[in-house]
Design a protein around this nucleic acid. Structure first.
Lengths: 199, 199
DNA sequence: ACCTATTTTAATCAAATGATTAAAATAAAT
DNA sequence: ATTTATTTTAATCATTTGATTAAAATAGGT
């Protein structure tokens, strides 16, 4: 057994397996990813996977928590910052989502799939209705600066506008015959457009 | 072999298999759905699946074409109707998506997943940039009624606003602790709100 | 009733797949 | 250098899974 992982030396074996697993799980989902694929991708022996992580399931859970946890955590920070205004938060959220998803284009579908097949396992970092963002939103409504609206719609709109184009990227690129560069350019435009639209 | 299918009598066996397959494939995806699951769900013998459909792949393609084809076809009709105005089309699209997805909540994720793992197989019913909707959109811009905007954003916005809440439904319901009824109510609200937002 | 074509069943195959084991290789400690 | 602990390998297991086959059941036509 690897005992207490010592000093975690270099990025060897254990990390290679995790990287390979993250790539394949995120890309193809749990069922479609075979342990042998992971072993190949990592350039290691199949047995090492079970040796380090006990089972395919365990390994998957680790990857999922990392994929989800980071994202939710960062969102929580933005959404709960008392020092930024409502509109600033919208800007930060759009920017965060799009910047992050340009680097991790496969994460949205992964998260959505996982949420459907295993809703119980979703790590809940914060109770969204209690966030500073929502309080500020309700305040704007009271002041008459925004039309009355269920805050649920606000969240769906931000995410729909920012995240959906990534989940649907393969479909959109196919239907519209757009190059990768053009797509990135479109997304960068959206960074600035989304906050305007929300208002 | 079933030869030329005769008169397709009642909704027997072949249709039972298809129904079961549609349910499971749409819900869990290709890799996670086992042929035995389908046979069980349909209440038939495992061999019948291969007898009627040759292989798991073939059966899946049929289901996919039905799931996708119907949808794209209906959208194509709305989007190319010369007799409706630009704004009317937006209303019809929002209404169509939300009505349809309330009955088929699992289709969005299914389509998005399939588009990613098999973009080549996506049935292209129409070239979106050549649709009447887009022409009318460009016209509105020329008339100065709308700000200049890449039409790609328009399509992403409509779908993001209408489709994303369904793809993300399990996650949203989990994060916000909303009942099914409340969720449906929210979606029905969106039917009317989305066209307003688009303007 | 009898023959024929169709549909269904039960049993089984071969490949894929997750997991385990015992032994070999490597590094660390004394 | 020798012993001990750790990491890696190769071989193998047991199950799962997609597919096939030959036989049985059912229906249709004459």
């Amino acid at each position: 057994m690897p005992t207490k992982a010592k000093i975690k030396a270099d990025d060897s074996t254990e990390d290679k397996i995790k990287s390979a697993a993250r790539k394949l799980f995120t890309q193809k989902g749990f069922a479609a990813t075979k342990t042998r694929d992971i072993a190949n991708e990592a350039g290691i022996n199949l047995a090492l996977l079970n040796y380090y992580f006990r089972s395919k399931e365990k390994l998957f859970e680790i990857i999922m928590l990392e994929n989800l946890g980071h994202f939710f955590h960062d969102v929580a920070v933005i959404v709960n910052d008392e020092k930024t205004t409502f509109y600033k938060k919208i800007e930060l959220l759009a920017d965060f989502y799009i910047t992050k998803l340009l680097d991790n284009p496969d994460v949205p579908l992964f998260v959505l799939n996982e949420a459907r097949s295993n809703p119980k396992k979703l790590p809940l970092q914060f109770q969204i209705m209690d966030t500073c963002l929502i309080k500020q939103f309700m305040e704007e409504i009271k002041l008459g600066k925004i039309k009355k609206l269920n805050p649920g719609h606000l969240m769906m709109n931000i995410m729909g506008l920012a995240v959906f184009p990534f989940a649907a990227r393969p479909m959109i690129q196919r239907v519209r015959d757009i190059s990768d560069d053009e797509y990135v350019a479109l997304m960068l435009e959206r960074k600035k457009l989304i906050p305007e639209w929300i208002k």
